[in-house]
Amino acid sequence: MKNIALVGYGVIGKRVADAINRQDDMILSGVCDIISDWRIQNAAQKDYGIYAATPNAEKEMVANGIAVKGSLKELLEKADLVVDCTPKNIAARNIEIYKKQGIKFIVQGGEKHGTTGHSFSAETNYATALNLNATRVVSCNTTSILRTLGALKRAGLLDYARGTLLRRATDPWESHLGGIMNTMVPEKDIPSHQGPDAQSVDPDLDVITSAVKVPETLSHMHYWNVKLSKAATKEEVLDALKTSNRIHLIRYEQGLVSNNTIKEMYLDMGRPWGDMYEVALWEDMLKVVGDELFYAYVVDNQAIVIPETIDAIRALTGLEADGQKSIDKTNKSLGIN
């Protein structure tokens, strides 16, 4: 059993906390944050040990009736590894604390590859993370790219890939703070950052991405044009994609015609928050023309990196040397079939 500390109890952090609690080989030592609102109050209702990141944060928490068990330093002293789920750029500052404390750490995809020197995706490079001191679980979109292109690569079908991402403008709970309405905002740089980010995990991928922010908050959608290494049938491509335990093939004829219908399916399945840990890829839209492949899929940016984070914990702490065994264990605990 390994003791795991969590810093940052937001959209990703609360999901990571619950996922850790579902494992039988790790224990959540506590959660640390600066907030004292409903988010951390819900964590306290779940009987998670609450720690304050700063003295001022502790005062605010106590004033709001939250029992504080200690400071960030005290939490880290109880843990074998810390998962940092704080907003972008904050984790990059926190890692100096972790290094001084001598504790292993995981950051999320909002941070740069250089913060850890290693980027992680379970199906692609689990073995390279074994017993490392730190890694970065790549972003939601990058995770989806590595799962889908990785499956094609393992089957010897991938030559190169070109993808367009339709990116949700903001998280649902923050829609009132900004975002975009009645317009679309193309990212000016091609490639967008997701292609090079995927190459930080698999340098051999020949991938270029472009991205557009769109006025919705449920998910991201990807369109891909892939040059195959040889002419192939649709069945060969589908067989390759099925080698990933974290790609869910869906069909229009099931009534799954949009991101909102997919979300509703996962809510009906009883997933916490309706979370979709898998890439939802339309099987009946997928088209093969000679050595060209076209397909589209949906990414739940709040959920897809959760199983990856659990696998990263096992790799860094040495709980499981076999990546596929960790993936299978994580999938079973989270209800990924």
Rank of each mutant, 00 (worst) to 15 (best):
W173F: 14
A211I: 06
S219R: 05
K213Q: 12
M276S: 07
Q194R: 10
H176W: 14
N260R: 15
Y277C: 01
P196Y: 10
A198N: 03
R246T: 11
L166I: 10
R246I: 12
Y252P: 03
S210H: 06
K188M: 12
A198Q: 03
D202M: 09
P215T: 04
V201Q: 05
M269D: 11
L218C: 08
V289D: 13
D189M: 14
V288W: 00
V201H: 04
R167S: 14
P186H: 02
P215R: 04
T243P: 08
E236M: 00
G255H: 02
G270E: 07
M184D: 10
A240G: 04
E278M: 05
P172H: 02
Y252D: 09
R168H: 11
V257L: 06
S192I: 04
V226C: 06
N225R: 13
M221A: 12
D204T: 14
E264F: 12
E235N: 08
P191Y: 05
Y223F: 15
H193F: 15
H176P: 05
Q199I: 07
V279P: 03
D284C: 02
W282V: 02
R168T: 08
A198E: 04
R167N: 14
E264P: 08
S210V: 06
K287A: 08
A231N: 12
K234P: 09
K230N: 03
K234V: 03
T261D: 05
T183I: 10
L256Q: 04
V226Y: 07
S210A: 13
I180L: 05
T209F: 08
L241R: 00
K188G: 11
L281V: 00
E235F: 04
G255C: 03
E253M: 09
Q254P: 01
E236W: 00
M221R: 12
P196R: 06
M265D: 10
T217N: 11
H193G: 15
H176G: 10
D284F: 01
L218P: 00
W224A: 07
L281D: 00
D284N: 01
A232F: 00
D284T: 02
L241Y: 01
M184V: 14
T243D: 07
N245I: 09
D268N: 15
L241S: 02
H222N: 10
S175F: 09
